[in-house]
Deep mutational scan, measured.
Amino acid sequence: MATGGRRGAAAAPLLVAVAALLLGAAGHLYPGEVCPGMDIRNNLTRLHELENCSVIEGHLQILLMFKTRPEDFRDLSFPKLIMITDYLLLFRVYGLESLKDLFPNLTVIRGSRLFFNYALVIFEMVHLKELGLYNLMNITRGSVRIEKNNELCYLATIDWSRILDSVEDNYIVLNKDDNEECGDICPGTAKGKTNCPATVINGQFVERCWTHSHCQKVCPTICKSHGCTAEGLCCHSECLGNCSQPDDPTKCVACRNFYLDGRCVETCPPPYYHFQDWRCVNFSFCQDLHHKCKNSRRQGCHQYVIHNNKCIPECPSGYTMNSSNLLCTPCLGPCPKVCHLLEGEKTIDSVTSAQELRGCTVINGSLIINIRGGNNLAAELEANLGLIEEISGYLKIRRSYALVSLSFFRKLRLIRGETLEIGNYSFYALDNQNLRQLWDWSKHNLTITQGKLFFHYNPKLCLSEIHKMEEVSGTKGRQERNDIALKTNGDQASCENELLKFSYIRTSFDKI
């Protein structure tokens, strides 16, 4: 039985969820670079991206490699990797027998973001014989899940209580170790020597080791999670996991709180800001991140802002960003909400898709409305799209047979046209069989910064309504002859009103 693990408890099935942008060198404390989270699957090609990484700022997932063999891993080693800020997950990587050479110096898994409450997941690794993470000293947050690894031993010899604050939620089941077939031998045991430290858990006094050649490092209890030197002297209180010299914040392997210019500090002093819960960055760093993602459509890219001495992905609820200094300031009234469309555009074809934009005031991208039916549609669209004030790209209304009016965009005031449909149009209306009105132009103002209007096959939309939009939106004169079809717009509506004058002759039985 794995020490510190839980057996036999019912657990939810383990679901495996399925960018080499360097964020800056980590400095003297770390020998390499800070790398983003990685999802490495199918083959070993991307694994080489770990070569210079000291910190993975995010998670590391290595999974679904069915053609790899043990010899493929023999020359692979990433000794610079010290810390993973989120979680480490391995799933069905064939041929991998140990992690001792792959990650010989991995010391800390912070667990800032977890995989279903777990910071370390080893699942269905069919050839893994031992973990071998002999320098792993601290899992700051989260638990361990090690399950269905039929060859995995050296679990009962690990004292997880020396690595985690609590072992109650560890789930370590259905491994070879369960069948008591392992016969784990710690260093020196074969020669009758006791080389590794022994600890007591559940009444068992057991030597602690990761492999037959690597003991588990056990520091004096007084050192807590700070770690200790090879001689057993406690590291500085700002260290986490390990250090090369005692009581020196510049000799830590990793930091308990924050890293700044080669030393570990309790908090980031001005003019620095907390970033990702582990390091200090200056304003320029946060500003660069903001600008890199301002026009990016890459998933996970955030326009970072500053709030409460932190550089964070977005302002919290009730705050909006001051564009001059990136500071989050309290909103006066309802907060603006910028919604970034991942692929640059979004099609609204149902109430469900409209709900995804609920509360958005600025759309960074283009909207395509293609709704053919739905219950209580006008009210639903207004509830979900009615706060949109600005669209950076274009607005396209296409084959939306259920629409009679666009009044559900009740606050839309600006279409920038930074991206144009077919390279020309910022407003595009095609084949809307029941569209009769755009907006009530006596109450609604709309500016279209650039781009043209396109109207074709809107049989109940009168040309007068379209011409009014040209005047109000500032697009009059931009359109070419064929942009607004004269014969297919309003051709099934009563669009022309003329005053009919009647004269009559009164007659009676005795007068003409």
Rank of each mutant, 00 (worst) to 15 (best):
H28S: 04
P31V: 07
P31N: 15
E33K: 09
E33R: 14
E33T: 06
V34K: 13
G37Q: 12
M38L: 07
D39Q: 13
D39N: 15
I40N: 02
R41K: 02
N43D: 05
N43G: 11
L44A: 12
T45I: 09
T45W: 14
H48Q: 15
L50T: 02
L50K: 00
E51K: 01
N52A: 08
C53V: 02
C53N: 00
V55R: 00
I56H: 00
I56F: 00
G58M: 00
G58F: 00
L60C: 03
I62K: 00
M65Y: 08
M65L: 07
M65Q: 07
M65C: 02
K67W: 12
K67A: 08
T68H: 09
R69P: 07
P70V: 15
D72L: 03
F73R: 05
R74Y: 11
D75N: 15
L76Q: 09
P79N: 10
K80L: 07
K80M: 09
I82E: 15
I82Y: 15
M83W: 02
M83F: 10
I84V: 03
T85A: 03
L88R: 01
L88H: 00
L88S: 01
L90V: 07
Y94R: 09
Y94K: 06
G95I: 03
G95F: 05
G95N: 06
L96P: 01
S98Y: 04
K100I: 06
D101N: 06
L102F: 13
L102G: 02
N105T: 03
L106P: 00
V108C: 05
V108F: 02
I109S: 00
I109G: 00
R110K: 09
R110H: 04
G111A: 02
G111C: 02
G111E: 00
S112R: 10
S112L: 15
R113F: 06
F115H: 02
F115T: 05
F115Q: 04
N117V: 07
A119W: 01
L120Y: 01
V121T: 07
F123G: 12
M125G: 04
M125T: 04
M125R: 00
H127S: 15
L128C: 02
K129W: 04
E130W: 08
L131F: 10
L131R: 01
G132P: 01
G132T: 02
N135L: 02
N135F: 02
I139N: 01
R141W: 10
S143H: 14
V144S: 05
R145A: 13
K148T: 02
N149H: 01
N150H: 06
N150F: 04
C153F: 01
T157Y: 09
T157K: 06
I158Q: 07
I158S: 06
D159G: 11
W160H: 01
S161V: 09
S161C: 06
R162C: 14
I163Q: 03
I163R: 03
L164N: 05
D165N: 05
S166G: 07
E168F: 07
E168W: 11
D169Q: 13
Y171A: 11
V173M: 05
V173P: 10
N175D: 14
D177A: 15
D177F: 11
E181T: 09
E181L: 01
C182F: 15
G183L: 07
D184V: 14
D184E: 07
D184F: 14
D184W: 15
I185R: 05
C186T: 11
P187I: 10
P187D: 08
T189S: 10
A190G: 06
A190N: 10
K191P: 08
G192S: 13
K193Q: 15
K193C: 15
T194L: 14
T194R: 08
T194V: 09
C196N: 03
C196K: 05
P197T: 11
A198M: 08
A198L: 09
T199P: 08
T199W: 11
T199D: 14
I201C: 14
N202I: 03
N202W: 09
Q204N: 14
Q204L: 09
Q204R: 08
V206I: 04
C209H: 04
C209A: 08
C209N: 05
H212L: 15
S213N: 08
S213K: 14
S213V: 10
K217V: 11
K217N: 15
K217C: 04
V218A: 10
P220W: 00
C223R: 02
C223G: 02
K224T: 09
S225K: 06
S225L: 08
S225Y: 11
H226V: 13
G227S: 13
G227C: 07
G227F: 08
G227N: 04
C228A: 02
T229M: 12
T229S: 10
A230K: 15
L233G: 13
S237L: 07
E238C: 02
C239S: 00
C239R: 00
L240W: 00
G241Y: 04
G241K: 05
N242S: 11
N242K: 06
C243D: 02
S244I: 14
D247L: 07
D247W: 05
D248M: 03
P249C: 03
T250P: 01
C252N: 00
C255Q: 01
R256N: 11
R256L: 07
F258H: 04
F258L: 07
F258C: 06
Y259A: 12
Y259H: 09
D261E: 02
D261C: 03
G262Q: 07
V265W: 09
P269N: 01
P270W: 14
Y273I: 03
F275I: 02
F275N: 01
F275K: 02
Q276M: 04
Q276Y: 08
Q276I: 05
W278S: 07
R279V: 07
C280R: 00
N282M: 07
S284I: 03
F285V: 03
C286Y: 08
C286T: 13
C286Q: 03
D288L: 13
L289I: 15
S296R: 04
S296E: 14
R297P: 09
G300P: 12
C301D: 03
Q303P: 13
Q303A: 06
Q303V: 07
Q303M: 13
Y304I: 03
V305P: 03
I306S: 02
H307K: 05
H307G: 02
N309C: 03
K310H: 05
C311T: 01
I312R: 13
E314V: 04
E314H: 02
C315Q: 04
P316G: 02
Y319C: 06
T320G: 05
T320I: 05
T320M: 08
M321L: 02
N322Q: 13
N325V: 06
L326P: 05
L327D: 15
L327K: 15
L327M: 08
C328S: 03
T329F: 10
T329S: 10
T329R: 12
L332R: 07
L332A: 15
G333C: 04
C335Q: 04
C335R: 04
P336V: 14
P336I: 14
